[in-house]
Nucleic acid binder design. Structure first.
Lengths: 211, 211
DNA sequence: AAATAAAGCTACTAATTGGTAACATTCAAG
DNA sequence: CTTGAATGTTACCAATTAGTAGCTTTATTT
């Protein structure tokens, strides 16, 4: 094992620890939300002392921002890996399903929904904003394509569709159905897809078979 | 002016102060959220010292619970005053419009959407839970009626419809469209109604003319 | 083995927050 | 006018939290 190998091992250990911290942060953000999560919580969840976290992240805000950046990267990667021949509306449905399943597994939506404080923090990060704009551009293009193919409502402006779509990825109805309903994850995802694309009004629901 | 009149005047002053406190609380809850709102904030907004708030409410939780109860009472009252001959789906649309306009005016949705901490606090109050269940029963009956009249999707279970409906009353897309779009309140309400009842997919939108 | 560097922790600091004690002011009763 | 009650405030308390100083432990280098 060469010196280079040893250095890599140490770097790997550092990275592993960093990922463990980010995992714990994501889990706690989903459970408690940004305003109630504490660095003590994260430290305890990882199994380190609080000051040790500051070897990896310079502040709580830095930590949360990096966790959210990782989520956005996940969504961008997911979009990238969808088959090129997939119809635009199917892309949107697939990403929505992915996001909902992440949430049902205890994860976070890839965009913060309502917390103005989080938003203020995140928009201070160029790395975060760059990714969010990239994702938005890609989804906007997909929406435009889907409209052209009569897959999405042409009566709704793109930004209305996009913001509503984002809101469906973090729809609180998911938690309520989980807590108070009798549905498994597949059923919840299916219903949420219907609600997103066909609404709750009378019409022809367009269910997508769960993957 | 009789002694009784004086007592009533004092009671009125007390009630006026209490309403001012609740107004301030509602405004701050909408702006900062439950976890970031402080009693100092409320006191400053009202123009009293913090300890004075405790003459009216025994804790921060009591204050917030009463503010939310007042909102629920508002929603129940609004439902009550709708014309008896109004179609069920129109009732739902009317209440959604009311809720959205309240929010666009700086107010709060009548049900908390995602904050588990708020929910835990509110469910400790019998007065709150009683009202929430009452509203839910009324809306469930309306949904059942609307389904019978083929106004709502019969493919979606009632609770899916209801939780989605509640989520639309606090849809974060409203804030985003307000912040980043070029829409006035009427347009936002109209779009949100379409998104709620017809979804974002291709179909026949069922716009309701803004009142 | 000794010295140095890196990693990790205990103990601490400053600031904030919900709520209270004690004091001050205003109002009402005698 | 004096006294007591009611209302309101300043100052304070205890607990919590982000972040840091200084100490300890572990790993690496000489």
């Amino acid at each position: 094992m060469s010196v280079l190998g040893k250095l890599r091992f140490k770097d790997q250990a550092f990275k592993l620890r960093e990922d463990a911290i980010l995992d714990a942060t994501t889990k706690l953000l989903a459970a408690k939300g940004f305003d109630l999560i504490t660095m003590d919580d994260v430290a305890e969840e990882v199994g380190l002392s609080k000051p040790s976290l500051y070897k990896h992240f310079k502040s709580k805000e830095d930590l949360v921002t990096e966790a959210m950046i990782r989520l956005l990267d996940g969504a961008l990667a997911y979009l990238d890996e969808l088959p090129a021949e997939m119809a635009p509306v199917e892309r949107l449905k697939s990403l929505l399903e992915w996001a909902l399943r992440v949430r049902l597994a205890g994860g976070l939506p890839f965009l913060p929904s309502t917390n103005t404080h989080v938003r203020a923090v995140l928009t201070q990060s160029l790395r975060y904003v760059t990714r969010a704009l990239k994702l938005n551009r890609q989804l906007d293009a997909i929406v435009t394509d889907a409209k052209r193919k009569a897959e999405l409502s042409s009566a709704l402006p793109n930004d209305v569709i996009l913001f509503s779509y984002y809101a469906r990825t973090c729809d609180p109805a998911v938690e309520y159905l989980r807590l108070f309903g009798k549905y498994d994850d597949d059923a919840i995802v299916l219903h949420m897809q219907v609600v997103c694309f066909a609404g709750i009004g009378a019409g022809s629901p367009q269910p997508r078979q769960p993957g």
